[in-house]
Design a protein around this nucleic acid. Structure first.
Lengths: 250, 250
DNA sequence: AATATGTATAATGTCTAACAATTGACATAT
DNA sequence: ATATGTCAATTGTTAGACATTATACATATT
């Protein structure tokens, strides 16, 4: 008969108003909100409350707060990287294992290469892909472990960008950012590194020849194989333990 | 030569500590943090700062704050739904169109059905899938628009759950939650509704018969078709405008 | 003239102390 | 037994002050 009264804190009201102003377009990226003291007058609430709303929106990634004389709260262009980082933080606590991520990535990239690639846009990307491989190989020779991994993941990131679909790109980025931590903490064998370079080149070539389906299959297989070896090496059960690496277990 | 000093606000320090305590397991879901006043003593900062940290973690979805005598800040089980909702809010501002979502979902479900289904686990799910269709049909007869849509989307949600992979489930949920808004604001034709019920039954049957590839193809086609018609009906260019439905465009 | 260096200013960051609102537990009255 | 009232604990909100930071501008130095 009666509806439960929705609990609401004052700052949520402010958040909604600002959020909507941004959605509607009254506030655009780089615009500056009134100063906290002005907002206090505008909304008729205390500064603490105003600040809670600003914090919330900052955390959400839609505001950026700068201190100082020309500072204030500025509307920020939504950055997929920020979102991905934030998501990653939370996902660490949600029973997500490395294998889940590997499998999800395999599926994503397979579907991208197999289904979402526009043939006419392919060729311009092949060059970029091969550049990544060259860069990775260079880092390998210079024994720059971290940089090599980044180049290799950039290769996979390019595959996601091939779709031009922001949702796909974001999902992929979330997974990659989380996965990368593992790779950075494992010393792979030389043969494994070589195989990766080889696979990547192979995928790029197949794309160039328009053999998208074949490229998709090899890509998925490649991800599963490399990830499997990583798991063997790190004997990681959960993302949690490897991430924290607690020295003193009681 | 020198590293840029990482700006840090005091509350971020507290957030990190609490976050790590949760990751390590010192704090488990349903555990209660000390009261704000105690935290003030523990961290040696003001209550305002403590509260900022709590807000942040609450917004992130890892804490739940209750007022009152037995209240306080409690560690929350991470809920994929919360994460999806949060992501959805931000994605609204990132040039995401309905067609992006439709395409991502089509390909995602196609991949799931085609590649990720464990044959031995299929049969237990077919029953659930058919239940969804029955429920949708029932709502259709009772002309419960909203409920019918929810049942239909639950059908697709089950497909994602078929993977048992939390990342895949999450990605799918984000897309579905965002997409649903559109469907709820469009009055579909009867034939369209019937076709959907029919398609869903067909997909379930094919799964039961182990024809996963066929089910995958039909599912993808189904999503594209329905989404295409939605777009025609709503003439929606961007998610933004349809969501806000501004009456007064300058 | 170009380059440091200081200074004022405006904004956010933090602190303190109080009061308001909410919730649950317990006592009390009916 | 069932309401009802009261108390205590906790978060929500307010007010005002001071601390810190970043920019712009004036001033001094070379």
């Amino acid at each position: 008969m009666f509806k439960k009264i929705k609990e609401s804190r004052i700052y949520e009201n402010i958040v909604d108003q600002v959020f909507e102003a941004i959605l509607i377009g009254d506030l655009k990226p780089a615009d500056k909100l009134p100063s906290e003291n002005e907002l206090v007058k505008i909304f008729g609430v205390s500064r603490v409350t105003v600040r809670e709303a600003i914090r919330y929106l900052e955390q959400l990634g839609v505001l950026e707060v700068r201190q100082g004389s020309m500072g204030g709260a500025f509307v920020k262009e939504v950055d997929l990287g920020d979102i991905a980082a934030q998501m990653g933080n939370v996902l660490r606590m949600a029973n997500v294992t490395f294998l889940h991520m590997a499998e999800a990535r395999a599926v994503l990239e397979q579907m991208i290469l197999g289904k979402l690639v526009h043939p006419d846009r392919t060729k311009e990307w092949v060059k970029k892909l091969l550049e990544c491989v060259d860069r990775a190989e260079d880092h390998f020779r210079k024994k720059e472990h971290r940089e090599r991994i980044r180049a290799n993941f950039q290769f996979h990131g390019l595959i996601a960008e091939l779709t031009g679909n922001p949702i796909v790109i974001l999902m992929h980025k979330i997974i990659v950012d989380l996965s990368m931590v593992f790779f950075e903490n494992v010393k792979p064998s030389t043969s494994m590194i070589m195989k990766t370079l080889e696979d990547h080149r192979h995928i790029a070539e197949l794309l160039e020849q328009g053999k998208t389906q074949e490229a998709a299959d090899i890509c998925a297989e490649h991800i599963r194989e490399v990830s499997g070896r990583i798991v063997d090496k790190s004997k990681t059960q959960s993302f949690l333990r490897s991430k924290i690496g607690r020295e003193d277990p009681e």
